[in-house]
Simulated assay, not measured.
Amino acid sequence: MPCGLDIRIHDNCQSFTAMNSGGTFLKLMEKIFRRLENKCPDMRSIFLTTAFVNSLSRERQSPPIVKTEYDHCKCMVGIFERLIENLDKINEQLTIIRHYGEKHAQMAESGFTGVMIEQFGEISVFIIGSQDVVKFNHETVKAWRLLLACVTDEMKVGFDRMTRINGRRNSCNPPATTVAGN
């Protein structure tokens, strides 16, 4: 298992099914992002900047670009649905999560940081861990903590990797300068 962890599939599946009924997990994601915005006030401007830049794009993305915080919450629900459904293939799923981290590196110029990913993980552990369906079962708490730690770690690995690559690309291509009078 990645991260040297034995994720209890049954505990995650049962509790996720309970939390995902009636849109509860979406509401949890909204709560997580509100708390993240409180801890990282730059998040609001990053969402607004990204939404504005994406709205100017003439390319049609498939799947569609995540433009708003609400879109991001819906996307996260989908990610967790696929993750939970495929916990028996956790390595493949974490590779996908790492790729999402790489995609977030393009927002580094807008102020997005790896610390924000870590904060997301910490807040998620607190909020998901405080749900009745999770908090009253020690094994379920442990399973969610381990799963969220793996997701956060892989997301950050992807983000850090692509941020370093982008930094190297930028240092290899210094801005062109012109000399007056030539």
Rank of each mutant, 00 (worst) to 15 (best):
N54R: 13
S55L: 08
L56Y: 05
L56G: 11
L56M: 12
R58G: 12
E59C: 07
R60P: 02
R60F: 02
S62Y: 10
P63N: 04
P63D: 01
P64S: 06
P64M: 04
V66W: 07
V66Q: 02
K67P: 04
K67A: 06
K67F: 05
T68H: 06
E69H: 04
E69I: 08
E69S: 09
Y70W: 09
D71S: 05
D71F: 05
D71K: 07
H72Y: 15
K74E: 13
K74P: 08
C75H: 15
C75N: 13
C75L: 10
C75Q: 11
C75T: 15
C75G: 07
M76C: 15
M76N: 12
V77C: 12
G78A: 07
G78M: 12
G78D: 11
G78S: 15
I79Y: 08
I79R: 06
F80T: 13
E81F: 10
E81I: 15
E81Y: 10
R82P: 00
R82K: 14
R82E: 14
R82Q: 14
L83P: 07
I84N: 10
I84C: 11
E85N: 15
E85Y: 14
E85M: 15
N86C: 14
N86R: 14
L87I: 10
L87F: 11
D88G: 12
K89N: 14
N91A: 15
Q93A: 13
Q93F: 09
Q93R: 12
L94F: 09
T95M: 13
I96M: 10
I96V: 14
I97W: 01
I97E: 06
R98E: 13
H99K: 15
H99F: 08
Y100E: 07
Y100R: 05
G101W: 07
E102D: 05
E102L: 01
E102M: 10
K103C: 05
H104P: 04
A105I: 00
A105W: 03
Q106G: 06
M107F: 12
M107W: 02
M107K: 09
M107P: 04
M107R: 08
M107N: 08
M107I: 05
A108T: 02
A108K: 04
E109Y: 02
E109W: 00
G111E: 06
F112Y: 03
F112K: 03
T113F: 00
T113Y: 00
G114K: 00
G114M: 02
G114I: 02
I117C: 00
E118F: 02
Q119G: 01
Q119D: 06
